[in-house]
Design a binder for these strands. Sequence first.
DNA 1: ATGTTATGACCCC
DNA 2: TGGGGTCCCTAACA
Length: 497
Amino acid sequence: MAGVMVERLPLAEQEKLSPAGLQRFQKTPAPLSEYEMKRLQNIQDNAKFFAALNLLETASALKKKTKTHTPSRGLKRTVPKVQEVEGVRRRSMRLQRVDPSGTPLPEAPVQWDPLSGDDNPMKPAGPLDMTPVDEAEILGFLKVWKEASLDGPAEALKQPLSNLKGYKSRLRSMTLGEEQVAKVTKNRIFSVAIHPSESRTLVAAGDKWGQVGLWNLDDRSSDDGVYVFEPHSRPVGCLHFSPAHPAHLLSVSYDGTLRCGDVSKAVFDEVYRDESASFSSFDFLSNDCSTLIVGHWDADIAVVDRRTPGTSHELLGQVNSKTVRTVHMHPVDLNYFLTAGAGDVSIYDLRRMKPRGMRPVASLSGNTKSVGSAYFSPVTGNRVVTICADDRIRVYDTSSLHAESPPILLSLKHNNNTGRWLTRFRPVWDYKQEDCFVVGSMARPRQIEIFHESGELVHAFTNEDYLGSVCSINALHPTRNLLVGGNSSGRLHVFMD
DNA sequence: ATGTTATGACCCC
DNA sequence: TGGGGTCCCTAACA
């Protein structure tokens, strides 16, 4: 803890688990809801799918596998080259930057424009096939993902908070080995997600240029279990498996689309699209995860219902700040949501959505520069953790939602200066231990840190051999001892017991 | 001043 | 060699 300055403030007592909080990670409790009907329909639809699957799997099992062992998992060194289908590519002298005699012209400053080149074209509207960028066979993988999604509600969610000592020993049991590191996207990671299954280990990451990589860690066969898709064309800022139906993987992107990767259909459906906008984040609004709240970069907030046809929002408001980097629902009272952006962290009431200048219910003041993220503690919502460019991590007491200015419990000095090439840190709470959060770090040796809300460094994950870079974006499994950290070259690191 | 966004410098086959 | 993989604490602009 050298160099770390902690300002301690009084702590409120620990709250009990709330049923509403629990439900976020459980199946929809209501019997025969619309969702259940839809699910039955899906089961029928999928019968055919599995029939086809069995046939193809048999066929692929007969294929000879000759791949040699490589020390690192994930995306391979040699990416299959896309052949120029048009034969010789004609380029003008001007584009080649040579004058008519063939002598090179002096280098002109080029404004790089992703929209004009064919490097990163906007994806077409409508569903995209779930075809990996290398066109690898994925039926076997989809089967795993689908089976993993059939896990019932976790008993562990109902267990009371363990004490800090017990929690520490759980963290100590989590290790990183060669098999727990893989490159899952081509470029730098902007978001990660963990499938909630207790029987299977499935993680995902979204990158700078719209890729979403999925990694099945249980796949120890000759294949490495990594499958890379490209459902977006710009950074994938936020990624979550649906807690109510984890066969769905939802993603939002700066490209102005929100998609839902659906195993049953093997497509990335388009849920919400606004080409003139840029989406930064989203959260599930209802416990059945059918409605979503989406934060736009320009401070618009949209409510989206996945059940209605079309790709527009149901409701649009604008919060009273310059930008919205993250949006997060209160886990107990689903009328309230939290936004964080440029120098502003506020709680708003959904029932008072307005087209412009919404007045917050509460303002979480103290951040003196740009705020990277803000999240409610996931079970009670009694805490909010923020991270700011002023090199502080702050924890607020939000147990009284109508306190206009929730008190700061902690202001922790932390080097958040990630610079030009690293994704900004986003501390997230641990569902298993609601008073602790995980955050990336610039400290050497490279580490991923777990802090208690008091500012105590509870644990630092390090590994001399396999963790040599900054993991900006991290996620913790809701019940298992499992941590995923993503770095700026597309690699995931999975600490587990 | 604050906040955001660009695509660099190396090393290694 | 050069293109791709990898890690990372800057500088211009609005």
